[in-house]
């Protein structure tokens, strides 16, 4: 088997696994009961799915000049998914949309309720 064929198989596997993770993320977004649980499904399998798809793309393009470009895509996705999940999670918690019946411990509501600064302020 030539190197090209091996790379082809690897690329195909990466693309399939990545698409699978994206599908799992979507299933989680539909199935899980409350917003914060859904956010877990939305951030993690989504980021790893994108990383797999982009790896598969790099393996199938086989062009060294796009490697930095694709690494940048994954890094940006990781950095920004942290920001958006934190912002959305915080807004949802402050709006009281967390279902208490699903929580084992809630150490944030147990502590003082007066937030530092206004809603969403840095």
């Amino acid at each position: 088997m030539s190197v090209g064929a091996v790379l082809d198989v690897l690329a195909a596997a990466c693309l399939l696994v990545g698409a699978g993770f994206a599908l799992v993320a979507a299933v989680g977004v539909v199935r899980l009961p409350d917003l914060l649980s859904r956010m877990h499904a939305a951030t993690k399998p989504q980021v790893i799915g994108l990383a797999f798809v982009v790896t598969g793309l790099a393996l199938s393009l086989r062009d060294p000049s796009v490697l930095g470009f694709l690494a940048l895509v994954v890094l940006l996705q990781m950095a920004t998914s942290v920001i958006s999940s934190h912002m959305v999670g915080r807004a949802s918690f402050r709006a009281g949309q967390v279902r208490d019946d699903l929580l084992v411990v809630d150490e944030l509501s147990e502590s003082t309720q007066d937030w530092e600064g206004g809603r969403g302020a840095p």
């Binding site: 698409a19 917003l35 939305a42």
Partner: peptide
Amino acid sequence: SMALDVMMSVMVCGMSL
């Protein structure tokens, strides 16, 4: 907005494909 965020990532995956 969160579901749209995931949709954006699905679009990125689709464009990669």
